[in-house]
Design a protein around this nucleic acid. Structure first.
Length: 629
DNA sequence: GCAAGGTC
């Protein structure tokens, strides 16, 4: 019988796919790596016929990239980093995974790649193929690729029966990113550390024994991340408050007081507001007229299905949990089988998924069990709804959702919170929107118009389980009809001041990084962590809220490079975005790998030359900023 | 010792 070796990106996928293809009849073997198991069973593949199958996996990348030995730290002039030979290397763990792949390849007739169907997965698939060929070159013409985006069994069987080929363009795109990130990161990190390292060390009171000299790193994601924080910091520092004036009316009926806001908002010209105010008083004194009454149904929308970025943003906002901590907790919950894979960009559920069964799982919980039960009741209000569909699909993972009820099974506080959040979010997704009624009343006073708005919440629906979101009935509007004249209880001209924005929160930073394509769902938290490690930014508590504030070093780096005047600022997201655009062009076959690598490396070489010539600007900027911060 | 990206 022919032998087919299948390899997934992680054990959880290997296990699930083996379960489906074998109909539950697979036997499990250990591998040299503790993260990886081999599953044996038989299956009828179109390309091989009835086969003996081994399904195994890697755990992420099988190889890493580095400069060759001769170009290590301090071993060569920095500019050589841009064209030094690059070698593929393996860590100890990767060596163990590779030995498993090689051993299982030796007597295989076919190799089928089951890595995630995203760009990085395509590259990992390629790494697996290279490793397998080292042990069994005869596999070369017998490599297939399964295309799948979730683990529903018909979908997986379909993927097994309709194999494709690896997409070499996607592989090339990833290799391009790796090479550019490596060369630019290593070159500028060595340069900055040599230029500023000892200076920073002295300022920190060093050098101290057993302590390394600080590393001043550059990374294609680190710098734009830092840039966002410094940008906000500068906007606040340079903020000049402006005075403004406005009119406001109040109406008292019984014990109810209603405030009416000026349709013009506020104006920055005191005299103009005073003139309008006088005009209104002269023409109408304390009398106003109801000129419009608009009433309409309104909704509070339930959330979209949960992505990693949304989870991190909300755990930061609601529980003050750092992105790194919330992702770690989610990973643990995933490993224990409580929730689905936590790194996903997808915000719509595949049609074939049995979401009602997942809701059913939650009916035993004493916090939201009753709510979940009611959702499944076809008679009551707030019945089960298919979740809203967002526009994002990473083609690899469904939105984050609970798999089984955790009940009292969790003792870690963070995991408990994250599980509760994931579950409440999921139940909210499957609920009806909040329903209410909104009324707007418009008064005319002299020639000016003023509005008051009232909302009455009629059905809370998802808000009952999604306790993090508030939606309450507001002021009740007085019972008046259009055309009616009313006596104002007050009509005032007031003044106010524009206020600066707040410092950056982690939640806002995640949003900015995501929107600008800086990092991925899996790495955004790491970049934020990294620039704290590097002492570019610090967390600071102010009025119960934690903010990210740049340090002297962080501000200096951003302004220093601005002073050097590179065409594409390192601290802006543009350069990274350009890279993403070019990677897409490689994937679409419109550019090739060498072309893009050359373009970027040439650009970085230019920038390196300029930075080197004007290195004094970096030192001067640091000295200047140190004296004012 | 340096990057960013997978995953544990």
């Amino acid at each position: 019988m022919p032998r087919v070796l299948c390899v997934a990106e992680k054990n959880s996928i290997a296990k699930a796919v083996a379960g489906i293809l074998s109909g539950g009849n697979s036997s499990r073997r250990d591998s040299p790596s503790k993260y990886i198991k081999n599953y044996d069973f038989s299956f009828d593949f179109a390309f091989a016929g009835s086969s003996e199958v081994t399904m195994t996996s890697v755990a992420g990348h099988l190889t890493g990239l580095d400069l060759d030995q001769a170009h290590g730290w301090g071993k060569c002039p920095i500019p050589q980093v841009f064209d030094a030979p690059i070698v593929d290397i393996r860590t100890k763990d990767q060596e163990k995974m590779a030995s498993n792949i090689k051993r299982e390849s030796r007597n295989a007739d076919f190799l089928m790649i089951w890595t995630d169907c995203d760009r990085e997965g395509e590259y990992i698939g390629w790494e697996i193929v290279q490793t397998a060929l080292q042990a069994n070159g005869a596999l070369r013409n017998n490599v297939y690729r399964a295309t799948f985006s979730h683990l529903e069994s018909r979908h997986i069987l379909n993927a097994a029966r309709n194999p494709n080929r690896l997409d070499q363009r996607a592989v090339d795109a990833v290799r391009t990113r790796m090479e550019v990130d490596l060369r630019s990161g290593v070159a500028f990190t060595r340069f900055l550390t040599e230029l500023l390292g000892s200076k920073i060390e002295r300022d920190l009171g060093g050098p101290k024994p057993n302590q390394q000299r600080p590393i001043i790193s550059y990374g294609t994601c680190q710098f734009p991340t830092l840039g966002f924080v410094v940008d906000r910091f500068e906007r606040i520092r340079k903020f000049v408050s402006e005075e403004f004036w406005y009119l406001v009316l109040t109406l008292s009926t019984g014990s109810n007081k209603t405030t009416f806001q000026w349709e013009r908002g506020h104006l920055f010209d005191r005299l103009a507001v005073a003139v309008i105010y006088e005009l209104c008083i002269e023409s109408s004194r304390n009398l106003a007229k109801v000129v419009n009454l608009k009433s309409k149904p309104t909704s509070k929308y339930r959330p979209f299905p949960l992505t990693t970025v949304e989870l991190q943003k909300n755990c930061s906002r609601y529980f003050k949990m750092s992105a790194k901590v919330s992702l770690e907790a989610a990973e643990k919950l995933y490993q224990k089988g409580y929730i689905s894979y936590p790194r996903t960009e997808t915000d719509n559920f595949p049609q074939a998924m049995d979401l009602r069964a997942l809701v059913q799982q939650q009916t035993s919980d004493n916090r939201w069990g009753t709510y979940a039960g009611n959702l499944l009741n076809d008679e009551g209000p707030n019945r089960f709804q298919w979740p809203r569909s967002g526009k994002h699909d990473d083609k690899a993972h469904p939105p984050i959702h609970p798999i089984v009820s955790a009940g009292a099974g969790l003792d870690d506080e963070n995991q408990k919170k994250v599980y509760e959040y994931v579950t409440r979010h999921f139940l909210a997704c499957c609920s009806e929107d909040g329903k209410g009624h909104s009324t707007t009343m418009t008064l005319q006073w002299g020639p000016e118009f003023f509005n008051a708005n009232g909302i009455v919440v009629l059905e809370r629906n998802f808000l009952d389980v999604y306790v993090y979101m508030k939606w309450d009935s507001t002021q009740e509007l007085p019972n008046l009809n259009v055309g009616q004249s009313v006596e104002l209880s007050s009509y005032l001209m007031k003044d106010g001041q524009t206020s600066p924005p707040n410092q950056m929160t982690e939640s806002e930073l995640i949003l900015l990084m995501d929107a600008n394509g800086i990092g991925t769902d899996a790495t955004i938290a790491e970049h934020i962590e990294k620039i704290q490690q590097r002492d570019y930014i610090k967390k600071k508590k102010l009025n119960k809220q934690t903010y990210l504030i740049p340090t002297t070093l962080g501000v200096s780096l951003v302004h220093g490079f601005e002073a050097i005047g590179l065409e594409d600022s390192f601290a802006k997201p543009f350069l990274r975005r350009q890279m993403e655009i070019d990677l897409k062009l490689i994937c679409d076959g419109l550019k090739n790998r060498n072309e893009v690598v050359n373009d970027f490396i040439t650009k970085y070489q230019d920038y390196y030359g300029l930075t080197n010539t004007r290195q004094n600007k970096l030192i001067e900027t640091y000295t200047d900023i140190k004296s004012i911060m």
